[in-house]
Amino acid sequence: MYDINKVNTHIVPVRFTYHSPKTLEEALELLSRYRGEARVLMGGTDLLVKMKMRALEPSHIISLRKVRELDYIEFDDQGVRIGAGTRLRTIEKSEEIRERFPALWEAVRVIGSVQIRNMGTLGGNLCNASPAADTAPPLIVYGAEAVIVGPRGERRVRVEEFFKGPGETVLEPDELLREVFIPYVDDAGSVFLRLTRTSMDIAKISIAVAAWFRDAEITDCRIALGAVAPTPIRIPRAEEFLRGRRISMETLDQAGRIVSEDIKPITDARSTAWYRRAVARVLTRDAFTIAWHRFESRRAG
């Protein structure tokens, strides 16, 4: 796509008009007015990098920095609502997220550096639609919903169906992501794991699992992976295989085999397709083992 060594990353070589709305309503009006020519800017950790590379050249930038109403974490009787403008660092610092949605917390915590998490937002991570977006697999296994707003009102889409391809989501050009809703799954055992080249890199492969057990039987489970297909994906065939089975190394190995068959990895700078398939098996086994231990200790504690 681009060669970092041939780009002057010192500047943003794109001319645009800058807008700084203070309310969501104003932001939506601007998006409609410049339909298709505008991009919203949150932390800029994806957008400005892409603009430096000229991978994106919007003629209008709508900065959401001043739109305070997008920044919140609210727990109610059904689940948690996280504003799209909530910074990753705020989520990382929430004890309640750590406690109730450990896989999301684990994913947020490994994103970039302290500086990146201070700038980057949950909405930006999802709307950027990288196949490796770390918050996606946990949100998918928790059954989270994206709350989208636009001139035609509000609609809700499951995070699982939010992505259409690399850099592409179900958002129309005049729509915004307002919030992510995650229903409580306090009775599940859940975990997020990822492999990287160095700790600051994005994932070669990532996995999130949420599972429910009765004694040693897996009563239900959800499995989602990142960086192994054009979008983050769920593996229904492995979930189906595991439902009703007793947890054992053998069962998990068979499930891992299904996962490695059903992902569609490519070979790129970070890893080979072969390695991604091989390690998907191991990660499936590890993730379920941890989820099972967590489920047990939740029940005990």
């Binding site: 943003v12 800058y18 932390g43 800029g44 950790t45 990098v49 900065s63 201070n118 700038m119």
Partner: peptide, 22 residues
């Protein structure tokens, strides 16, 4: 591009990368 931290400054008391802030 956000990788090295040489441009780190405090913005409202928190560390951010000034190479990626308009």
């Amino acid at each position: 591009i956000g990788e090295c931290g040489a441009c780190t400054v405090l913005l409202d008391g928190e560390p951010v990368l000034s190479c990626l802030v308009l």
